[in-house]
Amino acid sequence: MSRIGKLPIKVPSNVKVEVNEQIIHISGPHGKLLRKVSDLILVELNDNIISITKAENTRIANQLYGLTRTLINNMVIGVSQKFERTLQLQGVGYRAQITGKNLVLNLGYSHQVLIPIPLGIDIKVEKNIGIIITGFDKELVGQLAATIRSKRPPEPYKGKGILYKGEIIKRKVGKSGK
Protein backbone atom coordinates (compact mmCIF):
# COMPACT_ATOMS: atom_id res chain seq x y z
CA MET A 1 0.00 0.00 0.00
CA SER A 2 1.17 3.47 -0.82
CA ARG A 3 1.56 5.67 2.23
CA ILE A 4 0.61 8.71 0.19
CA GLY A 5 -2.24 7.06 -1.70
CA LYS A 6 -4.19 5.99 1.36
CA LEU A 7 -4.28 9.49 2.88
CA PRO A 8 -7.70 11.16 2.47
CA ILE A 9 -7.99 14.58 0.80
CA LYS A 10 -9.96 17.14 2.79
CA VAL A 11 -11.89 19.52 0.54
CA PRO A 12 -12.17 23.14 1.79
CA SER A 13 -15.64 24.67 2.02
CA ASN A 14 -15.02 27.08 -0.89
CA VAL A 15 -14.10 24.23 -3.31
CA LYS A 16 -16.67 22.22 -5.25
CA VAL A 17 -15.82 18.66 -6.36
CA GLU A 18 -17.75 16.48 -8.82
CA VAL A 19 -16.80 12.90 -9.67
CA ASN A 20 -18.39 11.52 -12.87
CA GLU A 21 -17.12 7.97 -13.48
CA GLN A 22 -13.40 8.52 -14.18
CA ILE A 23 -13.48 12.31 -14.69
CA ILE A 24 -13.04 14.60 -11.70
CA HIS A 25 -14.09 18.29 -11.86
CA ILE A 26 -12.76 20.66 -9.21
CA SER A 27 -13.74 24.33 -9.09
CA GLY A 28 -12.89 27.02 -6.58
CA PRO A 29 -12.42 30.77 -6.24
CA HIS A 30 -9.33 30.82 -8.50
CA GLY A 31 -10.45 28.55 -11.35
CA LYS A 32 -11.68 25.21 -12.61
CA LEU A 33 -9.69 22.05 -13.30
CA LEU A 34 -10.61 18.63 -14.58
CA ARG A 35 -8.66 15.40 -14.88
CA LYS A 36 -9.38 11.97 -16.28
CA VAL A 37 -8.39 9.26 -13.82
CA SER A 38 -7.19 5.82 -14.92
CA ASP A 39 -9.65 2.90 -14.86
CA LEU A 40 -7.32 1.17 -12.37
CA ILE A 41 -8.07 3.82 -9.72
CA LEU A 42 -11.41 4.53 -8.00
CA VAL A 43 -12.18 8.02 -6.68
CA GLU A 44 -14.96 8.51 -4.12
CA LEU A 45 -16.33 11.69 -2.53
CA ASN A 46 -17.98 11.41 0.91
CA ASP A 47 -18.68 14.37 3.24
CA ASN A 48 -16.08 16.71 1.64
CA ILE A 49 -13.39 14.02 1.83
CA ILE A 50 -11.95 12.45 -1.32
CA SER A 51 -10.68 8.89 -0.92
CA ILE A 52 -8.74 6.95 -3.51
CA THR A 53 -8.61 3.16 -3.85
CA LYS A 54 -7.19 0.70 -6.36
CA ALA A 55 -9.64 -1.16 -8.61
CA GLU A 56 -7.21 -4.07 -8.96
CA ASN A 57 -3.94 -5.05 -7.39
CA THR A 58 -1.43 -4.81 -10.25
CA ARG A 59 1.94 -3.16 -10.54
CA ILE A 60 0.62 -0.32 -12.73
CA ALA A 61 -2.28 0.29 -10.32
CA ASN A 62 0.23 0.53 -7.46
CA GLN A 63 2.26 3.07 -9.45
CA LEU A 64 -0.80 5.19 -10.25
CA TYR A 65 -2.25 5.03 -6.73
CA GLY A 66 -0.08 7.61 -4.95
CA LEU A 67 0.39 9.68 -8.12
CA THR A 68 -3.36 10.10 -8.62
CA ARG A 69 -3.86 11.14 -5.00
CA THR A 70 -1.10 13.75 -5.27
CA LEU A 71 -2.44 15.16 -8.56
CA ILE A 72 -5.96 15.51 -7.15
CA ASN A 73 -4.60 17.09 -3.96
CA ASN A 74 -2.65 19.62 -6.07
CA MET A 75 -5.83 20.44 -7.97
CA VAL A 76 -7.72 21.11 -4.71
CA ILE A 77 -4.90 23.29 -3.34
CA GLY A 78 -4.51 25.18 -6.64
CA VAL A 79 -8.15 26.26 -7.03
CA SER A 80 -8.30 27.37 -3.39
CA GLN A 81 -4.88 29.02 -2.88
CA LYS A 82 -2.83 29.19 -6.15
CA PHE A 83 0.77 28.13 -6.69
CA GLU A 84 3.79 30.40 -7.11
CA ARG A 85 7.30 30.04 -8.54
CA THR A 86 9.90 32.81 -8.42
CA LEU A 87 12.82 33.15 -10.81
CA GLN A 88 15.81 35.49 -10.56
CA LEU A 89 17.92 36.77 -13.46
CA GLN A 90 21.62 37.05 -12.69
CA GLY A 91 23.98 38.62 -15.17
CA VAL A 92 24.94 42.03 -16.50
CA GLY A 93 22.25 43.29 -18.87
CA TYR A 94 19.84 40.43 -18.14
CA ARG A 95 16.33 41.78 -17.70
CA ALA A 96 12.68 40.86 -18.14
CA GLN A 97 9.55 42.82 -19.00
CA ILE A 98 5.97 42.09 -19.97
CA THR A 99 4.75 43.35 -23.33
CA GLY A 100 1.14 42.53 -24.15
CA LYS A 101 0.66 38.79 -23.64
CA ASN A 102 4.36 37.97 -23.89
CA LEU A 103 7.26 37.86 -21.47
CA VAL A 104 10.26 39.54 -23.12
CA LEU A 105 13.68 38.44 -21.87
CA ASN A 106 17.05 40.07 -22.66
CA LEU A 107 19.56 37.34 -21.85
CA GLY A 108 22.74 38.37 -23.61
CA TYR A 109 21.72 36.95 -26.98
CA SER A 110 21.66 39.09 -30.13
CA HIS A 111 17.87 38.99 -30.01
CA GLN A 112 15.14 39.18 -27.38
CA VAL A 113 13.49 35.95 -26.24
CA LEU A 114 9.67 36.05 -26.36
CA ILE A 115 7.67 33.63 -24.22
CA PRO A 116 3.87 33.64 -24.61
CA ILE A 117 1.94 33.70 -21.31
CA PRO A 118 -0.64 30.86 -21.22
CA LEU A 119 -4.21 31.34 -19.98
CA GLY A 120 -4.63 30.90 -16.23
CA ILE A 121 -1.10 32.13 -15.49
CA ASP A 122 -0.20 35.53 -14.04
CA ILE A 123 3.34 36.86 -14.33
CA LYS A 124 4.79 39.83 -12.45
CA VAL A 125 8.23 41.29 -13.06
CA GLU A 126 10.01 42.94 -10.12
CA LYS A 127 12.89 45.37 -10.69
CA ASN A 128 13.48 43.87 -14.18
CA ILE A 129 15.29 40.85 -12.66
CA GLY A 130 12.63 38.98 -10.66
CA ILE A 131 9.88 36.94 -12.33
CA ILE A 132 6.94 35.73 -10.20
CA ILE A 133 4.71 33.12 -11.85
CA THR A 134 1.35 32.36 -10.19
CA GLY A 135 -1.50 30.11 -11.27
CA PHE A 136 -3.97 27.50 -10.10
CA ASP A 137 -2.50 24.60 -12.14
CA LYS A 138 0.72 23.41 -10.50
CA GLU A 139 1.87 21.54 -13.60
CA LEU A 140 1.44 24.58 -15.83
CA VAL A 141 3.20 26.92 -13.37
CA GLY A 142 6.15 24.52 -13.02
CA GLN A 143 6.40 23.88 -16.76
CA LEU A 144 6.39 27.59 -17.59
CA ALA A 145 9.09 28.22 -14.95
CA ALA A 146 11.20 25.38 -16.41
CA THR A 147 10.71 26.73 -19.95
CA ILE A 148 11.84 30.22 -18.91
CA ARG A 149 14.83 28.78 -17.03
CA SER A 150 15.83 26.67 -20.06
CA LYS A 151 16.40 29.83 -22.15
CA ARG A 152 19.55 30.57 -20.10
CA PRO A 153 20.27 27.94 -17.43
CA PRO A 154 22.74 28.98 -14.74
CA GLU A 155 26.34 28.22 -15.52
CA PRO A 156 28.83 27.13 -12.84
CA TYR A 157 31.78 29.42 -13.64
CA LYS A 158 30.31 32.91 -13.19
CA GLY A 159 26.87 31.98 -11.84
CA LYS A 160 25.04 33.84 -14.60
CA GLY A 161 21.65 32.71 -15.86
CA ILE A 162 18.08 32.23 -14.69
CA LEU A 163 17.79 30.68 -11.24
CA TYR A 164 14.88 29.58 -9.07
CA LYS A 165 14.62 31.72 -5.95
CA GLY A 166 16.80 30.20 -3.24
CA GLU A 167 18.69 27.97 -5.70
CA ILE A 168 22.40 27.72 -5.00
CA ILE A 169 24.76 27.12 -7.91
CA LYS A 170 27.87 25.14 -7.08
CA ARG A 171 30.69 27.23 -8.50
CA LYS A 172 33.64 25.72 -10.34
CA VAL A 173 37.16 27.09 -10.47
CA GLY A 174 38.15 28.24 -13.95
CA LYS A 175 41.49 27.75 -15.63
CA SER A 176 44.37 28.81 -13.45
CA GLY A 177 46.85 31.28 -14.85
CA LYS A 178 50.63 30.89 -14.78
Rank of each mutant, 00 (worst) to 15 (best):
I4T: 03
R59Y: 10
N14H: 10
G66N: 06
P12E: 12
S38N: 09
S27L: 15
L67R: 13
E18G: 08
H111R: 04
N48T: 03
E167Y: 10
I148Y: 05
N102V: 07
P156Q: 04
L40E: 09
L103A: 02
V113N: 05
I121M: 07
I123K: 00
I77P: 02
K160Y: 12
P153Y: 03
Q63R: 08
K101M: 03
K160W: 12
I162F: 14
E139T: 11
K172H: 11
L105I: 02
K172M: 15
K16Q: 09
Y94W: 11
M75E: 15
K127H: 08
V141S: 02
G135I: 01
M75F: 12
K170V: 12
I133M: 03
L33H: 04
K10R: 06
A55Y: 00
M1N: 15
G108D: 04
V17S: 03
R171W: 09
Y157C: 12
S27T: 05
M75N: 10
E18S: 05
L114A: 00
I131P: 04
D39G: 05
Q112C: 04
T147S: 12
L67G: 14
V76E: 02
I77Y: 10
G161H: 10
K32S: 12
L144Y: 07
G78M: 08
T86D: 08
V125A: 04
Y65Q: 10
G91I: 03
V113T: 14
G130C: 09
G91S: 10
R149F: 03
K170L: 13
S80R: 13
S80L: 15
P118D: 00
K124L: 09
K178E: 14
Y164T: 09
I169N: 03
G142T: 14
K124S: 11
A55S: 08
G5I: 01
Q112M: 12
S27M: 03
R69Y: 11
E44T: 05
Q143W: 14
I26R: 13
S110C: 06
S150H: 05
I9L: 02
I117R: 06
L87P: 02
S176E: 15
P29A: 13
L107I: 11
G130F: 03
G142Y: 06
K172I: 13
D122F: 09
I23S: 03
I168N: 13
S38G: 06
Q97I: 13
L144N: 10
G142R: 11
R149I: 06
S176A: 14
D122L: 05
A146R: 12
